[in-house]
């Protein structure tokens, strides 16, 4: 169960740190999906995993493969780029779709009128 590539000790510790941190942040985000009380609050939960969770995990992966192949290998940056651009798009679409539905159905979850603009 503990098969893994043979890295120098410092790299192994660094990669372990980033991978476990990323997984922990992602788990906290997913727990938020379960614990937060309503839909609009839950919208904030996935972005934990999509930003810091993915970021830490990919940094770990970049370090691992760069040390393993002895040249900078940064193709994981592509995943990070796609995730940071695509997650906001889905969340914004979901937020506006849900607001539209709540208003059409007259639900209490969304305010009937937009709140008054806050002055700075």
């Amino acid at each position: 169960m503990s098969a893994a590539p043979d890295l120098p000790l410092w790299a192994a510790i660094l990669v372990s740190f980033f991978v476990v941190t990323g997984a922990l942040v992602t788990l906290i985000g997913s727990i938020g999906l379960w614990r937060l009380p309503d839909f609009y609050a839950r919208l904030h939960a996935p972005s934990l995993g999509a930003t810091l969770g993915t970021g830490a995990m990919l940094v770990g992966s970049i370090i691992c493969f760069s040390v393993l192949q002895q040249r900078p290998l940064i193709h994981e940056v592509l995943i990070g780029l796609f995730v940071t651009i695509t997650t906001p798009v889905t969340l914004m679409l979901l937020a506006s779709a849900s607001l539209y539905r709540d208003r059409v159905e007259g639900n209490d979850a969304a305010p009937k009128e937009d709140p008054a603009p806050t002055e700075p």
Binding site: G32, L48, T51, L52, D114
Partner: peptide, 29 residues
């Protein structure tokens, strides 16, 4: 800011019940 707000939202999620009920809409120009 991503780093800071990750910590803030994480503590709200794992924190007590009344911290999770301050959510709301706002508008700005």
């Amino acid at each position: 800011d991503v780093f800071r707000s990750n910590v803030a939202v994480g503590s709200i999620i794992l924190g007590s019940e009344d911290r999770r009920t301050h959510a709301g809409f706002m508008r700005l120009k």
